[in-house]
Design a protein around this nucleic acid. Sequence first.
DNA 1: TAACTAAAGATCAAAATTAGTCAAAGTCAG
DNA 2: CTGACTTTGACTAATTTTGATCTTTAGTTA
Lengths: 151, 151
Amino acid sequence: MQNISNIIEEHLKQILNASRQGYIEIRRSDIADQFNCVPSQINYVISTRFTPERGYVVESKRGGGGYIRIRRLGFERTDALAEKLIAIIGGSITQREAEGIIYRLVDEQLINRRESFILLAAIDRNVLTIGLPVRDQLRAAILSAMLMTVF
Amino acid sequence: MQNISNIIEEHLKQILNASRQGYIEIRRSDIADQFNCVPSQINYVISTRFTPERGYVVESKRGGGGYIRIRRLGFERTDALAEKLIAIIGGSITQREAEGIIYRLVDEQLINRRESFILLAAIDRNVLTIGLPVRDQLRAAILSAMLMTVF
DNA sequence: TAACTAAAGATCAAAATTAGTCAAAGTCAG
DNA sequence: CTGACTTTGACTAATTTTGATCTTTAGTTA
């Protein structure tokens, strides 16, 4: 017997595939009702299967008219790259390492100078005024998120 | 399913766009009737979507012949822009306010969409995984730093 | 002209509507 | 039996909707 998480995963991928816009917006409780499970199961499915590493971006809004939006990222040249970057950055990264990555992206013309300035500003230790090791973890999260949205 | 606030927001922006003078004057109760909601809903829409951060000025008058006037401001590009932005951002800023600023910069064509994605990613509460009030302070620092480098 | 009245809009907080988090309990392959 | 993965649900957080009550303004009346 298949577990519910897999079934929900398949269902979401299917409607995502069928959608013309490249993303879907669901109501968490609708899906939960549909599959007869608790709402937080949907969060579990999303956090284990629709991750940035697998090429998905998930946004959401609470309150009236709330939703969860799942977007599949393009798979051209960036497929391997995004994955590689995420892997390199990992869960924690120093400023020096982060700068290395950004410089390389500029070299390879994957981002322009202006974009690199934005990235560099966001990961600077003078901006992330919080103690280690949280600072390096936060830097990794911020850099990953920024790069995921452009690739 | 859309929520009413978004629908009202779109409607106001549309008539604002169509207006010749750059501002509109509405009667609160008219709009409320039109969208079948309570009058205070209009205040909610205005206070969450037509904020100074997003470049709107709202004036109103009560009593007979009362009105709400919504004006769209332009963001002249000057040397003082960066300073102005820093002042608006201050030492702490919510995600909503930060998004307002970013949307406005896109509207004013001071940054492009791709850049806005980078900025939005960096100030997202799901990325800044740290408790309030530090999160809002960090967000202000990051946003300020990023904008400083481009302007 | 002062007082009154009706017609707006403003404010604020409660209620409603969603989604997120986290950890305990359950399941299952090896 | 153990460890990884899944299922559940209680509690939390964000956002919107609603309504009661307050304030301001223009016009009317004594």
